[in-house]
Amino acid sequence: MSHSETPYLQHHFETPEQQFDAGKLGMWLFLATEILLFGGLFCAYAVYRATHPEIFLYAHQFLDKRLGGTNTVILLCSSLTMAWAVRASQLGQRKLLIALLSLTLLGGFGFMGIKYVEYKAKWEHGLLPGTHFAPHAEGEAHGAAAEPAVPQPAVPKATPTIPPSAPGPAGTVKDAAPKLAPHTRGRPSNVQIFFGIYFLMTGLHGIHVLAGMGAIFWLLVRSIKGHFSPDYFTPVDFVGLYWHLVDLIWIFLFPLLYLVS
């Protein structure tokens, strides 16, 4: 096949098949790096949940299951419209392709809109990561707030509460050690770390949704210009792969963050 018959074929590829397969391989390699990127955050999640399950049980009550579930349905449906858009581009159905890409973009807007509502509620209730964590009374779900400040009993100077020296690595000891920081009643300590993990994971995912929306908008412009045909639909296919990966990550984030039991 000559290159003049196929204007989209780059000079360094022999055939459209070779070009398509090479591009697709590159796309899957990129998706693998994305999985590894999120893998680090999933690892932080796993370690923190393994050591402090009580924080996850407590803090997940602040996440709205209905909003999270709605967002899951929106992303799944937009995944269908994207997969259908790839099919439409393969079959040369230009009007259907434009309609389906618009629907997918709409799904992205819907997802980010709900995300905005969720983040705004967290912000207003002071449920923020790190040093910004300052839950207001009305933000506490189960009446853990408005707890009177109990004065700590004064520790006699004669019995210092210095823990026994640690024979193991720093901060560890073989025998049962006295608890220095007992949990305050109601709210376990260090809840802010849950919100650190929550905002990092959903935030990075949200950035990926925004990037995907940008790419879909680019596809929309090109499909209106009539750039795609059954001979050349590679960009639609590859952006589709990216959009499905974003969906894939949310499939794991939703039960792990919202449905803790």
Partner: peptide
């Protein structure tokens, strides 16, 4: 519309796409 066939890739039937959803 619908009559063309792509040079590369696989066209997934609509039945399968909706079944998966």
């Amino acid at each position: 519309a619908g009559s063309a066939h792509p040079r590369v890739g696989h066209v997934v039937p609509l039945r399968v796409l909706f079944g998966v959803l």
